[in-house]
Design a binder for these strands. Sequence first.
DNA 1: TATGGTTGCTACTGAATTCGTAGCATAGAC
DNA 2: GTCTATGCTACGAATTCAGTAGCAACCATA
Lengths: 99, 99
Amino acid sequence: MSESAKRPALADLIDLLGTKWVMRILWELRENALTFRALQAACGGLSPSVLNHRLKLLETSRLVERQQSGYGLTDQGQSLMEVQKPLAQWAQRWQRSLT
Amino acid sequence: MSESAKRPALADLIDLLGTKWVMRILWELRENALTFRALQAACGGLSPSVLNHRLKLLETSRLVERQQSGYGLTDQGQSLMEVQKPLAQWAQRWQRSLT
DNA sequence: TATGGTTGCTACTGAATTCGTAGCATAGAC
DNA sequence: GTCTATGCTACGAATTCAGTAGCAACCATA
């Protein structure tokens, strides 16, 4: 085996998206940037320390960046939400099936 | 507003997928069913109590079910992984961009 | 019958994470 | 100066997770 763990890129992404609040934050930013406090409120008032941690994580992952109007998705972040769009339709069918 | 919170189905799904280990478990079951212990090992040896909780959660969500050979994805679970496939390509571009 | 292996799962302790709230420092607007 | 909004830190309490031990049921084989 080589020195680098050769972990599939998808596995890393799954870990990232599987971290609590990460998907939610991306989702809340999908349309427009939000201030720290607005984002906090959108996420149901999660604690600022956790939000801060997640924002740092998302910044180093190049999915979120600081903008004039607060925090917003990078182009890459936008493209991820684009790829995730089919998920919305799937979610509706799924919810109906749970009745 | 109506009596039910009318929370978008996608929001519920995001909450579910944002729960620790949930995406990972679905990912590990993507190709074939695994026994409880094999699944535990595939997830890097997470504690059986957490795995048990997540499996119960995924069962009530109709994404995972018990099969002869252990735990496997339901048809619905399979279809979710199908929808998520474009994520794999996106992940590769993303990882390259992080260098 | 009994011996051994696998499996699904519970129990328990300590470590890590998150929640919930208070509050500070900075930066405009008035 | 005062007021408001903003980004963020601090800290104790509550929750969750990690890590390990072990049990009961189910085979298979002898």
